[in-house]
Simulated scan of single mutants.
Amino acid sequence: MSRIIAGAAGGTTLVSVPGSLTRPTTDRVKEALFSRLDAFEVIADARVLDLYAGSGSLGVESASRGAKSVDLVEFDGKASEVCQRNADLVNTVAQQKVVSVHRSKVESFLDRTQPGVLWDLVFLDPPYPLDEPALAVVLAKLLPHLAEGAVVVVERSSRAPEPSWPDGLERFAERKYGETKLWFAEPGVEAGPEDASDQAAEPEGS
């Protein structure tokens, strides 16, 4: 059972997507991820985009922690309904509409997004059947909508290769948590020498 870990709605139990339609981020991985994002100082007042949102867990966690706005994009009907229920939980606590749900394919959503609409923090947790070339297309479509200093987080199986980043989007860190691997990228920044120390696997017991 997933929950919101911290922030205004911390401790709130989230609605889960029934069956095996999605692959939810575990609370252990989510806690480690948001600890890093807090260190990057990218959550407060951020405009957040959660692609392949599933239950919307990452997006609503961001809203609870002070994001200005959150867009959840999910195509599956049952999953998008769960996204809406979880969005309503956070919006009720915030007493305003912080989280919006878009039932759409990710590619179509990005194609429809107007020029000048920018996000500060983007999560992508695509289903495993999405192959690497298809993921590369999505990343290329996303690039024009990244604000200066934006952070992009791609969650994949630890057995999957590194995403093919489009020109203008650079990986600056990666972390492994058991069977899950997180890739962190940002626009227009060269990867630095500190990356060598930022690629270790997270201990299983942490």
Rank of each mutant, 00 (worst) to 15 (best):
R3Y: 03
R3L: 03
I4S: 04
I4L: 12
I5Q: 02
I5R: 04
A6N: 01
G7C: 05
T12Y: 00
T13N: 09
T13S: 13
S16A: 14
V17I: 10
P18G: 10
T26D: 05
K30Y: 03
K30T: 10
E31Q: 13
L33K: 11
S35R: 10
L37Q: 11
D38I: 10
F40Y: 15
F40L: 14
E41L: 04
E41P: 11
V42M: 03
D50N: 03
S55K: 14
S55T: 09
G56L: 08
S57W: 13
E61M: 02
E61I: 05
R65G: 08
K68G: 13
S69H: 04
D71Y: 07
D71E: 11
V73C: 05
V73N: 02
E74D: 13
F75N: 14
S80N: 01
N86T: 03
D88H: 01
D88A: 05
N91P: 00
V93D: 12
V93Q: 03
A94T: 03
Q95P: 03
K97Q: 06
S100Q: 10
H102Y: 13
V106S: 09
E107I: 04
F109S: 03
L110K: 14
D111I: 00
R112G: 14
Q114M: 09
G116N: 03
W119E: 00
D120L: 09
F123H: 05
P126K: 01
L130A: 10
L130N: 03
E132C: 11
E132K: 04
P133T: 05
P133Q: 07
A134G: 06
L135P: 12
L135V: 11
A136H: 10
V137I: 06
V138H: 11
A140V: 00
A140H: 04
A140L: 01
K141I: 00
L143W: 02
P144H: 11
G149Q: 02
G149S: 08
A150Y: 00
V152W: 08
S157G: 07
S158D: 06
E162T: 06
P163N: 03
P163T: 09
W165F: 14
W165E: 06
P166G: 10
D167W: 06
L169R: 10
E170A: 06
E170T: 05
E174N: 15
R175L: 15
L182M: 15
F184E: 12
E186P: 04
P187N: 12
V189F: 10
A191V: 14
A191W: 08
S197H: 15
D198A: 15
Q199W: 14
E204L: 14
G205H: 14
S206G: 08
